[in-house]
Design a binder for these strands. Structure first.
Lengths: 125, 125
DNA sequence: GTCGCGAATTACCTATAGGAAAGCGCTTAC
DNA sequence: GTAAGCGCTTTCCTATAGGTAATTCGCGAC
């Protein structure tokens, strides 16, 4: 990401604007799993049980409801292949690619943050 | 790591890696308010009641506990100016600036998303 | 005919987030 | 001496997210 983020943070009049944007974004992506699920499927389209295995800790109930929500909101598509034992794959829509930048930042930051936590743990022992 | 040149699963270990990163990031920034609060203070350091007014919908109880949490996790500093009516300002730490990129993406995406929602609403009427 | 799989659904339960409203200790202002 | 503002804290309450475990339904395999 070659984005020069100097002075990117808003001046006064944009304040309320970006505050609202951030709140809206978080509202749309609420819950523990949505972003992770989208990431998972962007990596490659998958079936229900595959996702269940790849996302550590999610239950089938929660997965099902999250998938439904994501489908309604047009982040993913549920594609039924009418093969012999019909298999169903979930794939990201074009729209969910608009989240790539955000997911990238989340991932980068998450990694650095974990690193930082590890450091401060070491210091305490 | 040894290479298992089986299927064409695109960088499988990066997958799990960024998945974990994303989950960790969300864990650290959990709740409805943290990111918005950090943004608010990055815009400019502020006092309790100022923040209360600027963040629409937050209550003083929740604000207090979020500020505490953010302070413990070193995103902000609580600075007491021993002026006559001692005033207390909350300001972001250096560390919270590491969130600039993420916040920028959140804000951008949130704005576009709201735009999209508006469009799809129009279509339905 | 029953076993297991894939894709859920259902019922049940609980922890936690977080909202509303009031209060409290302090201080300066009227 | 009372009012008002600031920075919270306390109490009370509720909705929802989300966890566990069992069940369902269609299907093909054995």
């Amino acid at each position: 990401m070659e984005k020069e983020a100097e002075e990117v943070i808003p001046n006064k009049q944009d304040c309320a604007g970006s505050l609202r944007n951030v709140l809206d974004a978080q509202y749309a992506l609420n819950g523990k799993w949505k972003v992770a699920l989208i990431l998972c499927m962007i990596q490659s389209p998958k079936r229900f049980n595959e996702i269940l295995q790849e996302i550590p800790g999610i239950s089938s109930k929660v997965l099902a409801s999250e998938l439904k929500h994501l489908e309604i909101n047009e982040f993913i598509k549920r594609v039924v292949h009418p093969t012999a034992p019909a298999n169903i794959i979930y794939e990201p829509t074009e729209y969910s690619r608009s989240l790539k930048g955000l997911i990238g930042e989340l991932s980068d930051w998450g990694e650095k943050h974990r690193e930082k936590i590890k450091q401060s743990m070491k210091q305490n022992f």
